[in-house]
Every structure is written in structure tokens, then in C-alpha cells.
């Protein structure tokens, strides 16, 4: 691996290591005619160097807004930064400092999006768009960059690397476009890559290929990764740590193996039951009900209305309660269990 920076680093992050990215009590709301939408409430998130974190939730759970807040990519207005801190490599990010943000965007924190083809401008060839970004970040001539570009594209399983540079976004498949966008993100050499639903709009074979690539990247380059998905199976394959979001809040977080083996929050349990079930023997499991309206959240636990275990204390919002090493869930059941001993 000469193109992709330093030698492979053990993927497992040491406990207590200084975080690469740290969000503390992040709160973001959107103005809307129906009232203020509480998109992200009091979210604290740590990503250690070389760590891979999966964020899981339904549409509207706040996972995308959380990611976009990191480099403040939200349209503002209507998005409003209500409170909290974001630190990247120990540096406090000020959302209204465009110059600082531009330094972080791409170079510190790379992003890839759900529909990679739409993330390229339809009017320019892919090569020109790669060249533009590299020129902005490195100020070296394209000719000098080209070998590294081709090598990185091939690393991302693009056999006809020269040919792809000549294509327009609409002339390649969604899977190829996603791999080109991953290659472009890598070319800027970020410390952290945020992948927002990178496989959602792809066909099954392309999904497998893109996931395989992200897995390989993780193993071979030690790039820190935040993988956002509504699909638990995608996250399970790559993430070391998993964060479950519901109605703008983190409801459970912990090591991936623990979350999948022993989920503590009823919402996580429901998600797992609906995602990992086998079809033999009866009906598919589905979570009853629908997520609450973020513009008019009821007081107390947001999941209360859909929860089979709801009891009296659920009318107040539970804190994130410890449920083991590095594992926590936002549920009163944990407190009850602790009290019951």
C-alpha cells in the first residue's frame, strides 16, 4: 500500500486514546412551518483514530444530520446549531468559520453519499472532477497526480481506470460511481471517512463489492470510518462500535458484537428482530407503529408509544445508562434491573 498513506495500523482502537472526532451534546434543529424540528438532540459521539463506528437508525432518526453537522454541511437556514461542541483532532470546530471548515472538509473528514452518481456534476467528466478537487487540495499538476489517481482507482476495483476518467457520471453504473467517489475521498487522504448510506441505492452485487472495498480499506489503511446505514447487516459487517439512533437521540451504543448479541434497548431489539430474522416459520417481525413527529415530540422516552415494555417511569426521558464496558442504553429498564440486583 504505497498510495494510501501510512502502513497498516491495528484496527482496534486502544481504550482511552484521544479521539479523532468528538461531538459533545450536539443539538441541531430545523425551522419548519409545522414548528421546530428536533433533528439531533444532545448527541455525544466519539470516533477514535482507526476506529470504525456504525450509526444505525430509520429515516429521520437524525443519523445523516449528525454526520453533516460535523463539517457543517447543513443548509442554514433552516438548520440551526443549538448547542454542543465538535472537536476534530483536538481542535474546536466553529460551524460559522467557513475557512476552517474548508480545511477540514475533504482533507480531514471525507464524505461519501448515498447516490454517488448524483454526487458528481453531470456536466463534467469524472477525470475533470477528480482533477479539480486534487488541484484545490494539493496544488500539484494533474500530470504529476495521474499515476496516484490511477493506482487508487485500481485499488478501488476499477479495472479500466483510464477509461473511467473520460466518462461522464451518467455513463457509469451506480456501483462504479460509488467506487470512484471512494477513490476520490481517499486521494485527498482524510483521517476520517464518513459514508452516509453508501450502499443503499446500489444493486446487490454492487453492494457486496462496495462493502468489501470499505472492509479492505479498514483493514489495510487504518482509516477511521463512520458508516451510516438503516441496514443492520451492512453495519454488522464493518463496524467495531455501533450507535443506534431514534428520533434524534442516541438510544444505544456499544461494541458491535455486544449490540448484536445482547441488545439492551427495546428499539434495538426490535430492529434486530426485523433485520436478522429467518422467514421460515411464520410472519416477518415488524416494529409496531411509526416514529414520532420530530416537530412535536411527546415528553418522556420517544420510543414509549411503540414499546412493549413501557412502564410508569417512561414518561420522563431516560439518560444513557451503562450496560457493560463501553455499552450504554437509554432505557429505564436498565435502572430497574440494576435496582432489582
Amino acid at each position: 500500500m504505497t498510495v494510501l498513506g501510512p502502513a497498516p495500523v491495528p484496527a482496534r482502537a486502544a481504550e482511552g486514546e484521544a479521539p479523532l472526532l468528538e461531538a459533545a451534546n450536539l443539538t441541531v434543529r430545523f425551522g419548519s412551518p409545522a414548528g421546530e424540528v428536533h433533528a439531533v438532540e444532545d448527541v455525544s459521539l466519539r470516533v477514535a483514530p482507526h476506529e470504525s463506528v456504525g450509526i444505525v437508525g430509520e429515516s429521520g432518526s437524525g443519523k445523516t444530520v449528525t454526520c453533516m453537522s460535523m463539517t457543517w454541511l447543513l443548509p442554514s437556514p433552516p438548520a440551526r446549531y443549538v448547542g454542543g461542541h465538535i472537536r476534530f483532532k483536538g481542535e474546536e470546530l466553529r460551524r460559522n468559520d467557513e475557512a476552517q471548515m474548508r480545511r477540514i472538509r475533504g482533507r480531514g473528514i471525507g464524505m461519501i453519499f448515498q447516490n454517488a452518481r448524483l454526487s458528481f456534476n453531470p456536466a463534467y467528466r469524472l477525470g475533470a472532477q477528480i482533477a479539480e478537487v486534487l488541484r484545490m487540495h494539493f496544488r500539484t499538476p494533474w500530470r504529476a497526480q495521474l499515476p496516484r489517481v490511477l493506482e487508487t482507482l485500481r485499488y478501488c476495483n476499477i479495472a479500466d481506470a483510464e477509461g473511467v476518467l473520460q466518462r461522464y457520471p451518467h455513463e457509469v453504473s451506480g456501483g462504479v460511481a460509488q467506487r470512484v467517489s471512494i477513490a476520490l475521498a481517499l486521494l485527498i487522504r482524510p483521517d476520517l471517512l464518513i459514508a452516509d448510506e453508501p450502499t443503499t441505492s446500489l444493486d446487490l452485487l454492487s453492494q457486496i463489492e462496495v462493502l468489501g472495498l470499505l472492509e479492505r480499506l479498514r483493514a489495510e489503511t487504518g482509516l477511521a470510518l463512520v458508516l451510516v446505514s438503516h441496514d443492520l447487516n451492512v453495519v454488522r459487517r464493518i463496524a467495531e462500535r455501533v450507535v443506534i439512533m431514534y428520533a434524534g437521540r442516541i438510544v444505544e451504543e456499544g461494541p458491535a458484537h455486544e449490540i448484536f448479541a445482547a441488545p439492551r434497548h427495546p428499539y434495538t431489539q426490535g430492529l434486530l428482530a426485523s433485520a436478522l430474522q429467518r422467514t421460515e416459520g411464520g410472519r416477518l417481525y415488524e416494529l409496531p407503529g411509526t416514529p414520532p413527529d420530530l416537530a412535536a415530540l411527546p415528553p418522556g422516552c420517544s420510543f414509549r408509544a411503540r414499546c412493549a415494555h413501557a412502564f410508569a417511569p417512561c414518561t420522563s426521558m431516560p439518560p444513557l445508562l451503562p450496560a457493560g464496558a463501553g455499552h450504554a442504553a437509554r432505557c429505564h429498564l436498565l435502572a430497574r434491573e440494576a435496582a432489582d440486583g
Binding site: R102, I104, R105, F113, V133, M136
Partner: peptide, 22 residues
């Protein structure tokens, strides 16, 4: 508000390039 303008922004391109070039 097209995704490619957001992506250009996320890739660290300056505002004028997002507006004029993209």
C-alpha cells in the same frame, strides 16, 4: 441544492467554485 453541489462542498471546494463551476 443538488447533491453534486453538496458533494463539492464536502470535498472542500470553495464557495465560488460550488456556485460558478458546479
Amino acid at each position: 441544492v443538488q447533491p453534486y453541489v453538496l458533494a463539492a462542498r464536502a470535498r472542500g471546494l470553495p464557495r465560488w467554485r460550488q456556485v460558478v463551476v458546479h
